[in-house]
């Protein structure tokens, strides 16, 4: 058990709001091993980003605005119990994060070299000169041409893809064991997106680090992840390896997500599949299965009782009362029909 790089156990993150306490992340458990990429999928507001921010404890904890329950074990340390001082040593050094919005993730008043160097000097006992050399090396590693010139440039002089590379260079400059990537490619166009994904894949192999990859793009998941967790309204509804998830999705929500990917082949005039209904707000969480109101398979039991997490196989877990029946009814064909397109 304790061999996992990161193990999250029954994590709950509560926020204090004007209308009362809201639980943005509600009892999630997962783990990440060294050298693997865990995809975290779900629609906006399902708690993906809050999960990552909880791991680094970036949320405002002052005056009890944010409270946590559960444990986040990183190499035997419970991150929820360490002091802020210790947390600062872990951030950027052992666990790093890259953000969705590369455009505004760099401080406009400093050169990019300056910012990479700052992270290096913060965590390592290097002189300014050595740090500068390291910054140049890191930029070169991310494939930026003539890095020795680039480090003297300001963020506004770089393109979006370049900025994201700089962010990656900064995040990896201290050789972290775990990289949290919060939708790192969403703001980029597809060509740059694929370059950045390739880069992350290469760097993962080189550094042998674990990556927690947050995204809402299933295509990206198929591309780089080894395992996936699917989140819905603060809970994990399904956990599986990438292959299982696309071949045989068990939860109706996952099925819906996969079905709503636009198809390259097949009938053109057909409308895109849409999951009916809206995500309930966190102020008003249904007491049974959270997806019940939008699920075409839901029964009274779903509305009344919250489903536990069933283990279909040790690697494939699902939070649904009826996954077996659904599987019998339609499941067998589902995967076959999709595999050709989902893993493009």
């Amino acid at each position: 058990m304790s061999e996992h790089l990161l193990e999250v156990n029954q994590l709950k993150t509560h926020f204090k709001t004007e209308t009362g306490q809201v639980t943005a992340v509600d009892g999630i458990s997962f783990h990440i091993d060294e050298g693997e990429t865990l995809g975290v999928v779900g629609e906006s507001g399902c708690g993906k980003s809050v999960t990552s921010e909880s791991i680094l404890r970036l949320l405002n904890e002052r005056k009890g605005n944010t409270t946590y329950e559960g444990e986040i074990n990183y190499r035997g340390k419970d991150l929820l119990n360490v002091s802020m001082k210790e947390m600062r040593k872990i951030r950027g050094n052992e666990i790093s994060m890259i953000f969705q919005d590369a455009m505004s993730s760099l401080n406009p008043v400093y050169t990019v070299g300056n910012q990479i160097m700052e992270t290096i000097i913060l965590h390592q006992n290097l002189s300014k000169k050595e740090a500068e050399q390291k910054a140049i090396d890191m930029l070169a590693l991310t494939g930026i041409p003539s890095p020795e010139k680039r480090i003297h440039e300001y963020p506004h002089e770089l393109s979006g893809g370049m900025k994201q590379r700089v962010m990656i260079a900064q995040a990896l400059s201290c050789r972290p064991n775990l990289l949290i990537a919060d939708e790192p490619t969403t703001a980029l166009d597809v060509t740059i997106q694929s370059q950045i994904l390739d880069l992350m894949e290469d760097l993962k192999k080189e550094y042998d680090m674990g990556i927690m990859f947050i995204t809402h793009d299933l295509g990206v998941v198929a591309e780089i992840c080894t395992r996936v967790i699917v989140m819905y309204l603060g809970q994990i509804v399904e956990e599986a390896t990438v292959k299982d998830l696309f071949d045989q999705p068990l939860h109706p929500y996952t099925k819906g997500l996969i079905k709503s990917i636009p198809q390259l082949d097949g009938e053109r005039k057909k409308d895109l599949f849409v999951i009916k209904g809206k995500v309930p707000t966190l102020n008003d969480v249904p007491k049974g299965c959270r997806f019940a109101s939008r699920c075409s398979f839901s029964t009274d039991k779903c509305v009344e009782e919250e489903p536990p997490t069933f283990e279909h196989t040790p690697e494939h877990k699902v939070k649904c009362w009826h996954y077996k029946e659904i599987l019998e009814k339609e499941g067998a064909d589902f995967g076959k029909e999709r595999t050709t397109t989902a893993s493009h």
């Binding site: 680094l56 970036l58 600062r88 040593k89 872990i90 951030r91 950027g92 050094n93 790093s96 994060m97 953000f99 919005d101 505004s104 993730s105 760099l106 401080n107 406009p108 700052e118 992270t119 913060l122 965590h123 962010m167 900064q170 995040a171």
Partner: peptide
């Protein structure tokens, strides 16, 4: 509230820094 401030926090910068 800018992302680069959160990014700096995630890199381990202290409040005063």
């Amino acid at each position: 509230e800018q992302t680069y401030i959160e990014a700096m926090k995630s890199m381990g910068g202290s409040s005063n820094r």
